[in-house]
Structures are given as C-alpha cells and as structure tokens.
Write a protein that binds this DNA or RNA. Structure first.
Lengths: 341, 341
DNA sequence: TTTTTTTGAGCAATCGATTGCATATTTAAA
DNA sequence: TTTAAATATGCAATCGATTGCTCAAAAAAA
C-alpha cells in the first residue's frame, strides 16, 4: 500500500466518486462543487498524492516543460538569463530543461531534436556562434511550437526575440574611449552570421565616424572571440607594428586575452592602451586594472524572454505573433579605459 | 495527414501488422523476425516517425530523464561536471534536466520535489553549501530512486558518491606554500556541514603539523567563501595586525577577494604574501599574478558520476549498492605562490 | 505421418489523467 | 404544477507505447 503512489483513482475510491470528478476538482473546474473540491483536496493531502505529470502530459499534450537552449551554461550572461527564465517559469509551474550546444552547429541540431522528442511545450534559444543554417529552428516553427530567441538571434527566422541594443552599447563604449582621448581603437569582432557582433561593429564604426575618425580596417580583428583568440589578435596587431591606443572587444574573454598580451609586452593599461570589453563577465572586475565593459542586463532579459514566451504560448496562431523587445545595455566604466592625467 | 505525428499504429496499419509488433520491432525484440524489423524501420523512416517518449514513459515507468541538481550552473566546476554527465547520458539516450538550488536550502527542497514530480529516473546532486538537513534527499532514497552525490556530499546519507581527495589537494597545496618559505599561512574555510571544506581544513592542518608549524586558530577565517567574504576575511586579518605570509583559500573566489585587498594595501603578491586557491576557476589564470590553485578534475568527475549513476540504475536493490569514488586533484602552481628570490 | 518445439505475431489490458457527452438532481422560470 | 435552465457528477474513450499471454504456422523430432 505504501508501495504504489496514490492516483486520482485512489482518491476517487476513498471518496466514492469517480476519477473524472477528482481530476476536475484538482484542476479547480467550476463544474465541481466547492464541497467536493474541499474533500478531494483533503484526501489528496492525506494520501500524499502527487500528480503524475507524465500521464497528464500524454493526455493533454502539454508537458509543462520548456526547453532552453544556450551555447554554454557556463557563462555568466547565459546562466543569468536562464535564472531569469526559471524564475518566471517556476511561478507558472513549468520546468526548464537546459541544454547546451557548445557552439557546435551539429550538436545544436541534435539538441533541438532531443528537446522536441522530450515533448517540450516550447523552446527558448540563443543561437550558437557558428550556426549558419537555421533549418532546425524552422522545424520548430513548422510544428507550431512556440520559439523565442534571445541575444543571439538571426534575421532569417521570423520569431519573437529579445535582445539588447548592441549597437547602442558599442556606440557608447567607443564614444567613451574617444572621449578619453583614443584615436586608434582596435576592434575585436566575429565574422559570423549572428547579429550581435555585426551590430556592435556598426556601433563602433558609427561612433568613429561621428567623431570624424576614419575607420581603419587594419584595426579590425576577426576571430572566434575566446581568450586565446584575443591573445592572437593582440599579438597580430603588435607584431604588424600597427599603432593603436585602445582595444574595444565585442567579448570580455577576448579583451582579457589582449590584457594578458599587453602585460607581457610591458604595455601599460590604461596609460598607454585603454581597454573595453562587452558582456560584464564577473572576472572583468577582478582584473588589474578592472576592465570597462557593457552590462547586458541578463536577468531582465531572462524575465522578459520568459514573459514573451508565455504570452506566445497562450496564443492560437503562434506564427503571426512575433514580437521584438530591445533592452538598453549599460556601459560600466572601470579603470582600464580611464584617462591617466 | 501532415498534421498529427506518426505513431506506431500508423506504421502498423501501413504494414498490415499490429502496433505491438511494431513496438517490439522498434525495440529490437528477438521475438520479431529480421524481415519484419527491416520493414518497420523503413516505414518508420518513411513516415518520419518520432517515438513519443511521454507515452513510453507512462507505460514503462521510465522517463529517460535524469535530474541534475547543482548549487549553481554558473561555476566552471559545476558546468564542467554537468558537461561530463551529459556526455555519458546522451550516449545512453537519456536527457538531463539541470536545476539549480542557488545554495538556498529551501529552493533545494522545492527543486528535488520538482524533479521527482517530473518523474526523473534518478537524480545526481551536489549539496548546497547551507544545507544542514537532508530529509529531502532521504525521500529520494526512500522512493527507491537512484541518487548519486558528487563533490558536495554528506556523511548523513548512505549513497553512492564521487569526490576528489580534498584532503590531499589541501595538503599538497599547503606543503607547497611551506616549501616556498611560508610559515604563517592564513586559511579561508567555511563552517558548514559540507565535507569538502572540513577535509581541506584537515589537509591544511596536517601539512602544517608535518612541517612542525603550529596551527594558529587566529589564522583560520570562516566565511561563506564568496569574493566579498574573501575581502572581508583579508581585511580582518590585516586590521587585527596578525602577521601572515600566505593565504590558502578553500575557494578561488575568496582568494580573489584577498588578492584585491592585498593590492589595495600595496602588499605585493607573491613577494610579501603568497596565495593559493582551490577550484581552478578560469579567472585564476587571468589575474596578475595568476593564482595557484587546485584543479578538481571536473569533466572526469562528471563522467565517473554518470557512470556510477547508470550502474546504479541497472541494479535491483538501489540501496545496498553504495559506492564511493575518490579522484585525485591536481595542484596547479602559478606565479602567486612562487618564491621570489 | 504424428507429435513436440520453436518462431513470429496478435489480442487486449495497462500506465494515470483528461475531456466530450450524457444523466441525474436542483433550482428557477413560466 | 409543469417546463426550462443550471448544477454536479458519472461514463467511457483517449493519449501512444508496452507487455503478459495466447495462438497459429513452420520446423524439428519421433
């Protein structure tokens, strides 16, 4: 008797009513009398009844699971977004399956499939940096399953999305560096299809133009934007003897690499070269000097994304309701970019 | 027709056989002829059949989901372990639900409940730092659901567990500091019930004793081991005027805080004070100077944990089979702890 | 050729909750 | 008092896959 878990049938039996009534009572169906509801609830508690979500999912077609696909959970930005999503989802009694693509397009496809197979009610995703084909996301849409993208989005998909204003963040950062006296600002970017780096590059270029500083292609370094890539890019610039007085990297990791290389070359930051990154990864505040960066409003982004998602879930025609939210990032000025008098 | 997804019944109908046969064919049951299997597989592909895991889970009682509970996914150590777990799980066609307790005992209890309700086939967990009551884990065991703990374990639970040899790691680190000439080594630890900090403390103490250096309680700072706590602890020591020539912190975050405070007090690392942390968080290699730390073998730990878990899953009597694996950590020596001549 | 085994499949119940369609009982309106 | 409307519950099918049991046909043994 302790053995098998209690089901609605057990409750029904004890109360001499049917399982349907119990089910309706538990779901607070208006067709059930208050009295019966009370009794059912009481008996449910007494029998330590735990609803079987799997049975419910099978019948109702709703798994109450939402799949969250991120490039890597091991990044402050992504894990914070996830946290924001979780907060909202849990309130609504949804569970979150986090899965990681590890920036690998192949793995991303598999993962989408796996989530679909797990019968999630919808998917929230941020696209891997190297993804150039979006068929697997189209597949989600074709099935009429709600999809919301955040941060790493693409124009090739007509879906709801939540992003920060990367252009603005980059523009402000570049402007700040210019105000600190910089004229030869190196920019680290990524050549991929993903929106964010393009936008940041645009912000960088426009800020320069607006200050009447020519955009010098020699100062723009493309890479995969990891720490190692930042090192390589910095070495490149130094080796080529290209003069520069600042680095604005679209990734905190890459700017960290630059800082290391500058240190090794005994180039002083910020007096000789000023630095700014993007992302506000925690380590940027640990370094010596602490690095100026752009905060991406990760927790709000998670919450907004989840809210967008659940609105979508409520609607009938998933496709027609695409919605784009843009959050303002915040420039966090630290020592690495400040003029030394 | 495109509408509803194909089921085994659709396959059965097309082939003029029954769903049971299809089911068995798909599961490679020996009672089905090779020929039939081939046909079924072909038709399945043709109809783009995707098994409904939910239906299968309901009937078989196996959800093919495994719950992973970590204090926070946003830590290199934990996310690496998760990655190791995922690797193994995915190979075996299991999906992983990651959930975070955020070091909050209350949230941890809720999360365990949520996982249980999601009908995971088992749980892999690392206990929150502030958890002092383990009833929710006992509940898992009582239900006969496999549970494996890693890293943050407790003696109050009789379960399979995978840990590193924290004692060894701490002993070696302390010994290393002593060899570099340190005699007054501050230790940052956490007062909680969790094993790891106790073991590290023990390693620290024994290394001192073995070198005939008295253990001075004034040098041992207890805290929650975050960056801020490390700052506070370091300020404490300095303010009290307690002489010291090294800090060995059981957490990389806390040692980072110490480094900041030392920097602010113009105390030079490593020439005046040497530092070592624990965990090999990526940022420890970014700092100036890079920080000596202990690598916790996170990916192997994840894999071993998953392997232990799946072995457990195979067994009948879950309880009797507890198994403890201890991995050797590795001391990573960097500039922060090296003797300056 | 008859009997026994082996092999390949079908039948039908089952997992637990949900839900459209009755039906019985009250209550309100005519 | 009769009829219509509202309220509370039951019945039974359903979601899709799994599985114990039964059975027919084919192969092997007697």
């Amino acid at each position: 008797m302790k053995k098998g878990k209690a089901t609605i049938h057990d409750i029904a039996e004890k109360l001499n009513i049917t399982a349907s009534t119990v089910s309706r009572a538990l779901n607070d169906n208006p067709r059930i009398s208050e009295n019966t509801k009370k009794q059912v609830l009481k008996m449910a508690k007494q029998l330590n009844y735990q609803p079987n979500h799997i049975a419910s999912a099978l019948r109702s077609g709703k798994s109450k699971l939402i799949g969250v696909l991120v490039p890597t959970a091991n990044r402050n930005f992504f894990s914070s977004v996830v946290r924001g999503i979780e907060d909202i989802a849990n309130e609504l009694d949804y569970k979150v399956i986090i899965s990681q693509s590890y920036e690998d397009p192949e793995k991303e496809i598999q993962t989408v499939d796996a989530l679909l197979n797990a019968r999630v009610d919808g998917i929230i995703a941020s696209i891997g940096k190297n993804t150039e084909n979006f068929e697997h996301f189209k597949k989600i849409l074709d099935k009429g399953i709600p999809l919301v993208l955040f941060d790493r989005i693409t124009n090739e998909l007509e879906v709801s999305q939540v992003v920060i204003d990367d252009y603005y963040g980059a523009y402000e950062t570049t402007k700040h560096l210019i105000e600190q006296g910089c004229k030869r600002i190196v920019h680290f970017t990524s050549p991929k299809k993903i929106n964010i780096y393009r936008e940041r590059l645009r912000g960088y270029e426009d800020a320069l133009k607006d200050a009447n500083i020519p955009v010098d292609p020699a100062l723009i370094e493309e890479s995969n934007m990891q720490l190692e890539d930042g090192r390589t890019s910095m070495e490149n610039i130094i080796t080529k003897g290209i003069p520069f007085d600042a680095v604005f990297s679209s990734s905190d990791y890459a700017v960290m690499g630059a800082l290391q290389v500058l240190r090794e070359h005994k180039i002083s930051v910020p007096s000789q070269v000023k630095l700014a990154g993007f992302g506000n990864e925690p380590f940027t505040s640990f370094t010596a000097p602490p690095i100026t960066t752009v905060d991406q409003k990760s927790i709000p982004m998670g919450r907004v994304t989840a809210e967008t998602f659940f609105e979508l879930l409520k609607l009938e025609d998933k496709k027609s309701a695409t919605h784009k939210t843009v959050l303002k990032p915040e420039l966090i000025i630290r020592e690495s970019s400040l003029k030394t008098n």
